[in-house]
Computed example of a mutant assay.
Amino acid sequence: MKLRPLEKRDLPYIYEQENSRRVMALWFEEPYSSFDELQILYDRHILDQTERRFVIEDNESFIGVVELMDIDTLHRHTEIQIIIHSKYQGHGYAQSAMKAGIEYAFTVLNMHKVYLYVDVKNAAAVHIYKKIGFIAEGTLRQHFFAEGRYHDSLMMGIFKSEFEKPTK
């Protein structure tokens, strides 16, 4: 498994994932309405220094996406998001890709903290995040609206010092 920067050639895969109501509800967002909209967003954000998007690949197969959003260079924190294609879920890709994205945030971007939001009812994701070392920082009540209702969201964070592994 490896991460590489998102490229224009990846947009059909992104559209397939992000045009799924079920998948986008996990990010508390609505699906894109058209492929043209996705292309416009790609062109608009390609040089945006407050975000980084990576494709998760294994043997040239598109596995999913890891994104670092709202990169704040003053306070040195960023939000991380992940989507794994449904046919690759349950194979350990999410944990490996999250670790790689976090490593990038801490070692390349010099972030102090990486945080995320997750639906309190998404037990599988919460389990993975805790296994990586994320700590629950609080519950945001009815904070996000998706699929016709409000969702409580758990905010979780990890500091660089908590993520760093001891050297052997």
Rank of each mutant, 00 (worst) to 15 (best):
46 I>F: 01
77 H>M: 06
46 I>N: 00
55 V>Y: 01
52 R>Q: 08
142 Q>V: 06
60 E>P: 00
150 Y>E: 03
145 F>W: 13
139 T>F: 01
118 V>C: 12
131 K>R: 15
106 F>C: 10
42 Y>T: 02
81 Q>N: 12
57 E>W: 08
89 Q>P: 10
61 S>H: 11
64 G>A: 01
78 T>C: 14
81 Q>W: 00
53 R>A: 04
132 I>Q: 03
118 V>Y: 13
69 M>W: 02
136 A>N: 13
58 D>E: 15
152 D>I: 13
100 A>Q: 15
106 F>T: 12
118 V>F: 11
56 I>V: 14
54 F>Q: 11
50 T>R: 09
66 V>L: 04
74 L>M: 04
117 Y>T: 07
141 R>E: 10
108 V>N: 07
115 Y>M: 14
140 L>M: 13
40 I>Q: 14
109 L>A: 05
84 I>P: 09
101 G>C: 04
92 G>H: 06
34 S>A: 05
41 L>G: 08
102 I>N: 06
89 Q>V: 06
123 A>P: 00
58 D>S: 15
128 I>L: 11
148 G>K: 01
79 E>W: 05
98 M>D: 06
43 D>L: 10
82 I>R: 02
110 N>S: 08
64 G>K: 03
96 S>L: 14
65 V>W: 01
139 T>K: 07
97 A>R: 10
34 S>W: 14
119 D>I: 11
49 Q>H: 02
34 S>L: 09
121 K>F: 04
103 E>W: 09
85 H>K: 14
45 H>A: 11
88 Y>G: 12
85 H>C: 15
141 R>P: 04
63 I>C: 05
75 H>C: 06
81 Q>A: 15
77 H>N: 14
89 Q>L: 08
147 E>C: 13
62 F>D: 03
49 Q>P: 00
52 R>K: 09
55 V>C: 00
141 R>M: 02
123 A>N: 11
101 G>S: 06
113 K>M: 13
128 I>K: 07
84 I>M: 09
121 K>V: 08
125 A>Y: 03
148 G>A: 05
70 D>V: 05
104 Y>Q: 12
37 E>S: 07
89 Q>T: 15
96 S>F: 02
121 K>Y: 05
